[in-house]
Amino acid sequence: MGLLAYGDTGWGDELFFATLMTIAVAAAAIFIGFFLAAIFASFKLSKSKTLNLIGSFYTTVFRGVPELLVIYLFFFGSSGAVMYVARIFGYDGYIEVNAFLTGALSIGIISGAYSTEVFRGAIQSINKGQFEASQVLGFKKKIYYYKIIIPQMLRLALPNISNVWQITLKDTSLISVTGLVEIMRMSYVAAGSTRDPLFFYSFAAVLYLFLTFLSLKLFNKLENHYSKGY
């Protein structure tokens, strides 16, 4: 167990922080994904054919191309793209998009493609009659969305959101290729340095199992909470 010692002699502290990084990047990614999903789900449900097409293009591409490729594309392309835009505005220096943001964005965009489908499905399943009822009751459109649609949508979507979260959490392991020090990257470095890959990759597997187990429990609790009254 010396390998996992906490401090400069072992990899315990490094792996601990790497686990926090995994959680942080997964959390950032899923929220970026929700944000994108809110936009693209409304595109997909809109009456405009163009918007439909944009929405479908997004979900098709990012659910159809390997995560690893998307990550590489962002990794190699993001700084270039940001600098290109900056140059238009007259700034000619180097701007680095750091590994955390690159990782969170690339995973977030993939996660968003899955969330879009979840949101769309959830909105469609809400009874149309409710909209009419709320109109009769004189609710404003905004209130209608915040008070009636969104809470219901969340409840219906929770099991699927739980799935998307699991996918997102596991996908973060792939951003290790960009150098962000999360669980997989740290295990990779430790395995290389100690020449004990079996131990460190198995330990990484245990850490991921722990995280997926924990989130499952959490989502079950949430589901129970929100299904009160049904």
């Binding site: 392991s173 990484a204 597997a205």
Partner: peptide, 13 residues
């Protein structure tokens, strides 16, 4: 419950 990348690394390396 674990990423495919971890699985393939455990099996190969």
């Amino acid at each position: 419950g674990t990423p495919l990348l971890v699985q393939i690394f455990i099996i190969y390396f």
